[in-house]
């Protein structure tokens, strides 16, 4: 049986190599051992690559000695991408608050943070029912912010171009979803839609009861 199993496995492996074998270039990086599944160990090729990358990394570190001021914002944004809870969105909003204080004198950064804030508030109100493009826009605004903050020498015109671009996307998004982005419950000149819904529901259930009674009496009548 063991021989049979080995035969099939080796036949299968050969077939897989026939079908997909040409892709070995990239895959030579694999540190896999055939005998039994092993935890990953860096192959020589990969450790060489790592070594080669070291000076580059050091250079990057030199250019960016400090952590990005957007690091926490990015982290909570990615969490939002995964889970839309009050806690996660709250973290994102409090991070925006901190950044708004920090960048209060930079008009473009401040306005992008305001866009983020509006989006987060909208998402908080809608949670999983938020428009599927919501997070896409949050990511896009983040990219704009990241570009500006990563380039301290960027001119005001360049910053404005980025901010205006994001604002346009935001406006288009607002149009897509209607008035909901303001986060307000649907109201028409002081009329509470929820109250109307309740009345209609009550009326409907009364109507249903009456109809059932009528049908029953018709059956009895027969």
């Amino acid at each position: 049986m063991a021989t049979n199993k080995d035969d099939i496995t080796s036949d299968l492996d050969n077939r897989l190599d026939e079908l997909f074998g040409e892709d070995d270039g990239e895959d030579s990086f694999v540190p896999e051992k055939k005998e039994k599944p092993q935890p990953i160990k860096q192959s020589k090729a990969s450790s060489d690559a790592k070594e080669a990358a070291k000076p580059k990394q050091k250079a990057v570190q030199k250019q960016q000695p400090m952590q990005s001021p957007l690091e926490n914002l990015k982290s909570s944004m990615l969490e939002m991408d995964w889970e839309l809870t009050d806690e996660v969105i709250g973290k994102f909003l409090s991070e925006i608050d901190k950044l708004k204080t920090k960048y209060s004198s930079d008009k473009m950064i401040f306005s992008l943070l305001q866009l983020h804030e509006s989006m987060a508030k909208y998402i908080r109100s809608k949670k999983i029912n938020a428009h599927p493009d919501s997070m896409k826009l949050v990511h896009s605004v983040f990219e704009g912010l990241d570009k500006i903050i990563a380039a301290p020498n960027m001119t005001e015109d360049e910053k404005k171009k980025i901010a205006v671009g994001e604002l346009k996307l935001f406006k288009a998004f607002k149009q897509k979803i209607g008035p909901a982005v303001k986060g307000a419950a649907p109201r028409i000149e002081g009329i509470d839609i929820e109250a109307i819904r309740k009345v209609i529901k009550a009326e409907l259930s009364l109507f249903k009861e009456e109809l059932l009674k009528e049908m029953k009496s018709m059956r009895i009548g027969r």
Binding site: L16, F20, D23, V30
Partner: peptide, 8 residues
């Protein structure tokens, strides 16, 4: 990189 190896 390793996409095919993973699949195989």
């Amino acid at each position: 990189q390793n996409v095919v190896t993973t699949m195989k």
